[in-house]
């Protein structure tokens, strides 16, 4: 595909997406009716089910959600353990910040957990207490509905890449990673973040134990230094515009442009490197000279096969030992020296 054809294809794809978006917008139903007209369990319990209030009353019109009389002061009568109270040490409970559920005039616990009036009300002996919406793997609510509660306030924070992101597609709930009631959310602390991530990404945990790796095991880096788990437009949810942009955040000395460029370096660092960890120095995907010989076949020494005879027990060779190819071609990421065409200067 020529460059012009590629640009035309890009424009065409954008137009097609916009057309689909218009069709979808026209067909999608309006926003759901306000909560005041929606009834929880009372009218939706199937016949014969053990619904606390369903058999006591069957109103002909939907009932308004029942909020507690005192808000958090009601909830804390029962839910007063240290774990639950830890939320008051978090930004969610800043009563001076008008955006938070515990600011003046806000719905406090019920902002996220929904109307709790029937949950807190007196129940007859032997009857089940009406549940309150909960979050996490034990919640009966679909993940997207759980997340909609969080996104109601955190839309702008995470929305940039979330719709259609890998985690959204995989049905990851916000609370799969975030501990809302913890005084210090572990996923927001560099030293503890990776423990959350490796729960679903076990291979990366194993790679962090390899002898050459970024300092995640030592708690000096976090997964979010390179990835945005809420999603981005870049591959692998990387925080940079491209993979190389992400790497250059800390490795700007390799950014160039150089006089003599090494082509794979300019395109994609992961052509040669394994960023999560490697058993080879420099996080290289494979040991030199074999890595280099996967692309280089010039006549002479570049094409000589590695052999045990090149070790100190035989005829020790600079091609095999030390830094191998990089003993001479040390400026492998690019050279700005007029005589650096072979990356030796």
């Amino acid at each position: 595909m020529t460059s012009r054809a590629r640009r035309l294809a890009l424009v065409g794809a954008c137009v097609a997406l916009a057309a689909v978006a218009a069709i979808v917008t026209a067909q999608e139903t309006p926003d759901p009716a306000p909560a005041a007209t929606e009834a929880p369990a009372a009218t939706e319990a199937p016949a014969g089910a053990e619904a606390p209030a369903a058999t006591d009353a069957a109103p002909t019109t939907p009932a308004a959600p029942q909020y507690s009389r005192k808000g958090a002061d009601t909830c804390l009568v029962c839910h007063d353990d240290v774990t639950m109270l830890a939320i008051f040490k978090t930004p969610h409970a800043r009563h001076t910040d008008a955006r938070t559920p515990f600011a003046a005039g806000q719905l406090q616990c019920e902002a996220c957990h929904g109307p709790g009036g029937s949950h807190a009300a007196r129940v007859k002996s032997g009857q089940q207490r009406p549940p309150i919406p909960i979050f996490g793997s034990a919640s009966p609510a679909p993940v997207d509905q759980q997340n909609s509660t969080c996104l109601a306030c955190h839309d702008a924070d995470v929305h940039q890449g979330w719709p259609g992101s890998a985690h959204e597609r995989e049905g990851v709930a916000c609370v799969s990673c975030h501990e809302i009631h913890a005084a210090h959310d572990p996923v927001l602390v560099k030293a503890t973040q990776s423990e959350t991530c490796v729960g679903c990404h076990p291979r990366q945990r194993a790679q962090s134990f390899l002898p050459f790796a970024h300092p995640l095991r030592q708690d000096r880096m976090a997964c979010s230094d390179c990835h945005n788990p809420h999603g981005t437009m870049a591959d692998y949810a990387l925080v940079g515009r491209t993979l190389n942009d992400t790497c250059f955040t800390c490795h700007a000395e390799k950014r160039g442009p150089h006089l003599w460029e090494h082509a794979p370096v300019t395109e994609d660092c992961s052509i040669c490197h394994e960023p999560h960890g490697s058993s080879h120095p420099g996080l290289l995907a494979q040991r030199q000279p074999l890595l280099c010989q996967q692309c280089h076949s010039e006549a002479g020494h570049p094409s000589v096969p590695l052999s045990p005879g090149q070790l100190p027990t035989g005829m020790p060779s600079a091609q095999a030992l030390g830094r191998s190819c990089m003993n001479c071609h040390s400026q492998i990421h690019g050279s700005n020296h007029p005589s650096g065409a072979a990356f030796e200067r």
Binding site: P32, E44, P133
Partner: peptide
């Protein structure tokens, strides 16, 4: 119950 309640929460 949970689904309906959570659906309501967001709008609330």
């Amino acid at each position: 119950i949970g689904a309906a309640a959570l659906a309501a929460v967001a709008a609330v």
